[in-house]
Computed example of a mutant assay.
Amino acid sequence: MRIVQLANAYSPTSGGLRTVVDTLGRGYVAAGHERVLVIPGQRHSREQGDEGLVVTLPSVPVSGGYRMIPRFSPVRDLLEELGPDSVEVSDKATLAAAGPWARSRGVGAVLISHERLDAVAAARFPHAWRASHRALGPALNRRSRRLATRFDTIIVASSFAGREFDGTGGSLCEIPLGVDLEIFRPCASSPASWPEVPRGTEEHPWRLVYSGRLSAEKNPAVAISTLRALIAEGLPVHLDVYGTGNQRQQLERVAADLPVTFHGHLTNRTELAARIAEADVVLAPGPAETFGLTVLEALACGTPVVTADTGGAGELLAAGAGLTATPTGAEMARAVAGILAWPESERRAAARHRAEQFPWSATVASMIDVHASLAARERNLSRRKRRGLRRRKVTESAAR
């Protein structure tokens, strides 16, 4: 199969979306399929590599340092040239037009729903959402209905993500994402060999980690509030923040009097994994996560997680691997204190065991099945159309 992946907001710092798109692409190539990736860039370029052809199309900058292909017409021309068997779209804006194009050409069309429109709107613009959600909610539902009619299959990674399309009549397929269990792993190979480092003293404070984009929908301010609440309760703690975004300067000002270190975006995933593995608890306060890759990566490192009790990240947790909490400083601090009271070897073993249930190989295999079934369906439809056309021609010729 020739699978063409289309993605907006794909950049070196785009985190989860880029991880998903790249990992799936590598999996397609490893399984013997041809993969083409189309992403926004400053200018048009084509580069053939081991992971397939990568095409960048001229784009415009948008918020968060991302870029977006503003018009579908150059994408349409490229698709006409490439002649894909299946199209995979990671965008609900301009690139969603690939769905109707694919349908008109007898090509499979798959949308990966990376975010829930209503949940992101509520998280990014909380005051406006509370004031006008009665009007905005139905409008976003209509948008979801339109998306559902444009694609053969919509991929969601959690039950929470799937609820965006309740009542739309769309064909949904829930496929959990995965984690690289080799890169993201505990400090040692077995719980028995993990060092019992003394924590909870001024010399060795409990280590907390926040890893993700520093933007409103990720709710990083609650990580700072959690740190402050723990200190108020007399717990020696230190917070390491990995990530960048438009809220960084504001967060640095708020946390100026607190034991917190802002490390920026770490491009070396192995180094990031090692630092997460050394932490005691990872904080994931984002209220609108449709899955929570950073949560899964933390669990794979043997580090338990406190997640917001809204969104899909809580679906990843299991007994002993973490807790959900209302995304406020006081409630998340209470959950952190609870986890720290668990035996270290047990909580780390439970976290790793849960992550091992989500290998990327399972995600890739499920996605290939989706693409293959759509491609086979379109081939069968095309054959039936050709047979029908031949029968009509024979009938018309006999009538003459």
Score class of each variant (00 low, 15 high):
I3Q: 00
V4E: 05
N8S: 11
A9G: 03
A9Y: 07
R18V: 03
T19H: 00
L24G: 01
R26F: 01
G27T: 09
G32W: 13
G32L: 01
E34F: 10
V36G: 14
H44P: 04
Q48V: 12
D50N: 03
V54G: 07
P61T: 06
G64R: 08
Y66N: 12
P70L: 06
R71G: 10
D77P: 03
L79E: 12
E80R: 15
D85W: 01
S86V: 15
E88D: 10
K92E: 07
W101P: 04
W101C: 00
G108W: 00
V110A: 02
S113K: 06
E115K: 05
A119E: 05
W129R: 11
R130C: 02
R130G: 02
A139H: 14
L147G: 00
F151E: 06
S158V: 12
S159F: 07
F160V: 06
R163T: 14
R163F: 01
D166R: 15
L172G: 04
E174N: 10
L181T: 14
L181H: 05
I183Y: 04
A188Y: 11
E196Q: 01
G200V: 12
E202A: 14
H204L: 01
R207Y: 00
R207H: 02
L208S: 12
V209M: 05
S211W: 09
K218T: 14
A221H: 01
V222L: 09
I231D: 03
L235G: 02
V237T: 07
V241H: 11
R253I: 11
A256Q: 03
T261P: 07
H263L: 01
G264T: 08
L266W: 05
N268E: 08
R269C: 00
A273N: 05
R275E: 07
A277M: 08
V281R: 06
E289V: 11
L293A: 00
L293Q: 01
E297P: 11
A300Q: 03
A308L: 15
G312C: 06
A313K: 15
A318D: 06
G320Y: 01
T326L: 13
G329W: 12
A330C: 15
A333H: 09
R334I: 02
A341V: 03
P343K: 12
E344V: 08
E346Y: 09
A349I: 10
A350I: 05
A351C: 03
R354C: 02
S361T: 13
S361R: 15
A362N: 12
T363Y: 08
I368W: 01
L374M: 00
S382Q: 08
R383Q: 13
R383N: 03
R384C: 02
R387K: 12
G388R: 14
L389Y: 03
R390Y: 07
R391D: 13
K393N: 06
A399K: 13
